[in-house]
Amino acid sequence: MLCERCGQRPATVHMTEIINGHKSETHLCEVCAREIQPQGFGFVPQIHLHNFLAGLLNHELGGEQHDQAETTGNRCEKCGVPEGQILKQGLLGCGDCYPFFEDKVLPLLRRIHGSTRHTGKVPERTGGRARLAKEIGILKNHLKEAVSREDFEQAAQLRDQIHQLEKSMNEGGEV
């Protein structure tokens, strides 16, 4: 069947509309369908983000387990959510799922974000060591700049600050 609108391409979109009991059928090719797409009627099936993720995760787990039931697979030792449910929903169960399913989650994160390392904000109270590490990183950059400027007085100061922070980090405490 050819498209009713352009008469050139094969009709692949078949639409049935019932308005006040009157039924009408339209057969269109994909190109025309997209052009006249009526408000509110999406031809393209909406793919929910979570389905996509579930697909990606499935891939990480080696495709064959595609149709596994929600209750199968390892369970997170903290929240008890089974792998099967994560695959189905595309959502993890709790913060501890990240380390628990690490071997699957990390490749997924690399695929989504192109990275597996957070470089942004660190919470003040719960961040502890991460915050120190971030601060040290920033100071080291400043140090490099100071050295290249040949501002050795500031470089010395920065070096001392870095030592101080590294010391408190090694002691496991906070500043």
């Binding site: 990240y98 597996t116 660190v122």
Partner: peptide, 22 residues
């Protein structure tokens, strides 16, 4: 207390939001 990991940042239900969560 927020769910936060040194490596992965703020932990979220969906892995597309992890890190900054922003």
């Amino acid at each position: 207390d927020y769910a936060f990991s040194e490596q992965l940042g703020y932990l979220t239900a969906c892995p597309t939001n992890v890190g900054t969560g922003m």
